[in-house]
């Protein structure tokens, strides 16, 4: 394996790990449900995407072809993350989950 590929894989791995961890920190420390929704939908999805890219580079340098499965996983995660966020937000609005005092604007429930 070339040194360049090794550097690229390592960088992608670390970036992915950092984003995943930040998403989880956001989930643990932000004040209310709606703000916590932001961490997983963005940071974690991008983190897994970066890890998947490193896996694609790794297996293609090993000469095992380009990983279609990895790309399918990423595409699927990027498509479903906003949908599950939307469903959870709807459920939270229905249950009238507590929002932090600093929130401006109103929710609605129909």
């Amino acid at each position: 394996m070339s040194t360049f590929a090794e550097y690229a894989i390592s960088a992608m791995l670390i970036i992915g790990g950092v984003f995943t961890l930040i998403g989880a920190i956001g989930l643990a420390r932000l004040p209310d449900f709606y703000t916590r929704l932001h961490g997983p939908t963005k940071a974690t999805t991008v983190g897994v995407g970066a890890i998947v890219i490193s896996s694609v580079i790794y297996f293609s340098t090993l000469g095992r072809g380009i990983g279609i499965e990895e790309i399918l996983i990423t595409a699927f995660l990027f498509m479903t993350a906003p949908i599950s966020a939307n469903f959870l937000a709807k459920a939270a609005m229905h249950l009238e989950v507590r929002t932090s005092e600093k929130t401006r604007g109103q929710t609605w429930d129909q």
């Binding site: 989880a24 989930l27 449900f33 916590r36 599950s84 959870l88 459920a91 939270a92 507590r98």
Partner: peptide
């Protein structure tokens, strides 16, 4: 503290 929080945690 609420059910949506727990589902979100499971999702992540």
């Amino acid at each position: 503290p609420d059910a949506p929080d727990r589902i979100l945690a499971l999702d992540t």
